[in-house]
């Protein structure tokens, strides 16, 4: 097709102007943008701010310690009004880089649009001193706190405060959303606890401290870790020592998270004749886990099935 350049240029300019104007209009009416570092916080945001545009930087199939500060994440963080992350240094390898590269002043500090779940509650396993020979440990405690229902509720309350601070026009809406979520959550907790009663006092072997809060809550005891040190994958000599431990015969199951390799667990499970359970690390970690409620249901059901 031949384009008449004399006509084309003004037309192109008009189109461009229109596009830019539309861009600004849609910007002005743009939704509240939420960047969640992990899917559990995207799910929590969905409960508390269902109208927001929510993006999860990671999935339940990805180790949240080992995320790359990749271009798509920079682009999403650039547009964020609020970034919700676990904190306690879980994202230390990538969040600071994203903040630096996205040049978005809104999500730089916790005074404004940055929210760390771990800062809202007391984490378990905080350490006075940390040495790397202990592995990749977090001095600020275990950041995988979303499997403790009471702590998560505390986070939900603090997150609602943050949402009201950043988007005061919708204050009533956020309060109503929190009230509804708290009600449903508080109803679910005794139901979960009742259902999980048979698990109380049972011993398990797990990979990393990914489910520490879940185990603490349900009274499960993690007697051994597939990782010789936090962050160091299972070695054959370590697995051999776990096999000796497993042969004592008091272990219920071997538990790994949806993002963890099954190799070491399968090796051990086969030799020790123990079931290997893959628990969803977060929402989206298996088919059943579509929100926080079904995530808890699924995790408890999977554990009960091992009996």
């Amino acid at each position: 097709m031949r384009i008449n350049s004399k006509q084309f240029l003004p037309k192109a300019l008009k189109t461009l102007t229109l596009a830019v104007t539309l861009g600004f209009i849609s910007n002005a009416q743009a939704e509240f943008n939420i960047f969640a570092c992990e899917p559990e916080y995207a799910a929590l945001a969905k409960e508390l701010a269902p109208d927001a545009r929510i993006y999860s930087a990671t999935t339940a199939m990805q180790d949240p310690h080992q995320v790359q500060a990749r271009p798509s994440l920079i682009a999403k963080m650039r547009q964020a009004d609020l970034a919700i992350c676990a904190g306690a240094d879980l994202e230390i390898g990538w969040l600071p880089m994203l903040q630096m590269k996205s040049a978005n002043a809104k999500v730089r500090s916790t005074d404004q649009g940055l929210f760390f779940a771990a800062e809202q509650i007391d984490t378990v396993d905080q350490m006075k001193s940390v040495d790397r020979s202990m592995g990749d440990v977090h001095a600020k405690g275990n950041p995988h706190l979303h499997f403790d229902p009471k702590r998560l509720l505390g986070v939900a309350e603090a997150l609602t405060q943050k949402l009201m601070q950043l988007d005061p026009d919708s204050t009533a809406q956020y309060q109503a959303n929190l009230a509804r979520f708290s009600q449903r959550w508080n109803d679910a907790i005794p139901r979960w606890e009742q259902k999980a009663k048979p698990l109380n006092g049972k011993k398990i072997i797990a990979y990393h401290s990914s489910f520490k809060y879940l185990f603490n809550w349900l009274g499960l005891e993690q007697v051994a870790d597939l990782e010789p040190k936090p962050g160091i994958p299972p070695s054959s000599s370590h697995l051999a020592s776990l096999l000796t431990r497993a042969k004592q015969g008091d272990i219920l199951a071997i538990i790994i998270a949806s993002y963890q390799s099954e190799r070491g667990a399968d090796w051990l499970g086969e030799r020790a004749d123990l079931p290997v359970i893959v628990l969803p690390m977060s929402v989206g970690g298996n088919e059943q886990s579509v929100d926080l409620f079904s995530l808890y249901d699924s995790a408890i059901d999977l554990l009960l099935a091992a009996k």
Partner: peptide
Amino acid sequence: YKWAPNGNYKY
């Protein structure tokens, strides 16, 4: 270009 199964860089 970077590739990881499920975007999980751990393994």
